[in-house]
Design a protein around this nucleic acid. Sequence first.
DNA 1: AAAAAAAGAATGAACATTCATTTTTTAAAT
DNA 2: ATTTAAAAAATGAATGTTCATTCTTTTTTT
Lengths: 194, 194
Amino acid sequence: MAKLQKSIDKRNALVKATIDLVNNNGFHATPMSKIAKMANVSPATIYLYFENKQDLVNQTYIQVKAEYTNYTFATYEDTMPVEAGFALIWNRIADFKLKECDNALFLAQCDNTPMIDEESRQEGIKHLQPLLDLWERGRKEGIIKPVSDYVLYAYAINPLSFLMMTEKRGAFQLDKTHLEEAYESAWSSIKACK
Amino acid sequence: MAKLQKSIDKRNALVKATIDLVNNNGFHATPMSKIAKMANVSPATIYLYFENKQDLVNQTYIQVKAEYTNYTFATYEDTMPVEAGFALIWNRIADFKLKECDNALFLAQCDNTPMIDEESRQEGIKHLQPLLDLWERGRKEGIIKPVSDYVLYAYAINPLSFLMMTEKRGAFQLDKTHLEEAYESAWSSIKACK
DNA sequence: AAAAAAAGAATGAACATTCATTTTTTAAAT
DNA sequence: ATTTAAAAAATGAATGTTCATTCTTTTTTT
């Protein structure tokens, strides 16, 4: 195997181990030694790929966030009508959160704790711009409520994180019907009233 | 000062210090020694009040969660009409999250990490029953969408956590107008369509 | 003066990170 | 194609620190 590919594999194994362990035990109970073991690597090797533990978790966050937004906007075109564009983006996000449950869970944990450096957090936010642009367009066309992006995000997108986490905890099963209800609620909460 | 009151004060100081430090540094960077220092107490004294660190954080969670639900339902009567009851509860929750920001932030962190024992988490959930009963009534009366409690919670209540956290991070200022918009979105997302 | 509460110092384990060697890879020379 | 030596990557075993928890003594309360 090529050297470069091997390095990439090893780095990915470390990132994946970090996600798994932080998801299951929390950052406070995730020692480097366990990460190394899970990635089949010596603890010392981690330091060839990352500066230190904080850097490892920051970079993991940035990578996962990038995967998330890439997936989200992969098939989106900014020429789509507002409602169709929103439906597409919303469903891609829902998809990601259900299929890439571990990744989504990790992001939720990072976004709700001081675990990540402010700088990395900012880095992660950047890529959401297409959605904000869509909303701006929607407001201009009178299709979307004339309301702050934060409020729109809180009601249209963030609830998916809650539902994903609830499902992961085993409290209930998120099926196709639930998702349709959820989309309905999301759209209801942000569309301009007639 | 009476002995009992002194004990209560000391316990409260420990709980408050835990909240402050976990909010600002995360669980992983909150040693017992710092908690003790902030509460003006010897590290050893913590162990007169709590079994160990995990017990301290579990009990803190349960106490804050109880304050949250007590505040939420303090003025609620289950004879109120559904929409009025929901408006009341929603506003109390919003109030709590804005005024008792530190408490709310702490809960959000606990609810999104494996920091709290499952048992304590369950304990914390119990007190939400009046809201679930209200929703059940609302569904029967055709006022609330016939949708799972989890979906209702995700859209009606959880977004407030996101908005509170966003404000705390300084990204935007949550004013009276935002709150009215937020209520409007919350209600839109759960009321049965006409 | 006995009992309870609190304190500070001590203990031992866990951990992040580094160090000294070993293993693997690379690529130049045969 | 093989060999070989230099470079790079990886390792397991230290290292030194930090931390949760306990122990012994002191202070406060009854």
